[in-house]
């Protein structure tokens, strides 16, 4: 059971949590699901938006061209982005004519694994996608791994210049003791 952290009355917390979406947060999915299914069903992103705006996708650090073929399994990390500048940015785009120039790292969907198991998929949001969808993911709290939680609580301390109280499953906890949070993941949100 993932513990819930609420950071109350620190206005900077919402932005700090928002920008940590770049580093990755967790969404549940079923293993063996395709990228397109994950984005539309688990992330609730319309297919029209995916086609129009999400022009660069990495799966485990490998650029993807076919989101209907590549499947997600245990430990999958997915990063989604708009169209990117530069020749290398152009190379990384879905279906780029310059794909041969990064051929040796392209994910062609050959990996196989267990199907149908509930898995946490790490999702990273970049640039225009972060801007368009970030707030929607953080609205009801977002699941981060422990190190990210430590980092963002320290950032909140730095922003307010002092320690503060965090609510963890309705229990108060001092921010300066953040290293004592040892669960793998936490669900975190902010409230003003």
């Amino acid at each position: 059971m993932i513990k819930k952290i609420i950071i109350k009355n620190i206005p900077e917390a919402a932005d700090i949590i928002f920008y940590e979406l770049q580093g990755g947060f967790y969404i549940e999915a079923l293993s063996g699901t395709t990228i397109i299914s994950f984005l539309t069903e688990s992330c609730d992103i319309p297919e029209s938006y995916i086609i129009d705006k999400i022009k660069t996708i990495f799966h485990n650090g490998n650029p993807v061209d076919d989101i209907k073929t590549v499947k997600l399994y245990e430990d999958s990390v997915l990063a989604i982005s708009g169209a990117m500048p530069g020749i290398v940015g152009a190379m990384m785009r879905i279906g780029s004519p310059y794909a041969p120039m990064r051929e040796n790292i392209t994910d062609k969907g050959s990996r196989e694994g267990v199907i149908g198991k509930t898995i946490p998929v790490k999702l990273k949001l970049f640039n225009v996608i972060l801007s368009d969808y970030g707030k929607r993911f953080t609205e009801n709290g977002v699941i981060f791994e422990r190190e990210t939680i430590h980092r963002l609580i320290r950032k909140c301390e730095s922003a307010v210049g002092k320690k503060f109280l965090i609510n963890i499953d309705n229990t108060s906890f001092e921010s300066s003791n953040v290293e004592q949070l040892t669960d793998e993941k936490y669900l975190i949100s902010s409230a003003v």
Binding site: Q22, A79, G82, A83, M84, P85, V88, G89, N127, V128
Partner: peptide, 22 residues
């Protein structure tokens, strides 16, 4: 999308996350 959105909003530094991910 690139010249009209990503570059004006984030500059060329928009590439950091992408190239790092790659």
């Amino acid at each position: 999308a690139v010249t009209g959105q990503a570059l004006p909003a984030y500059g060329t530094n928009v590439l950091v996350n992408i190239i790092n991910e790659s």
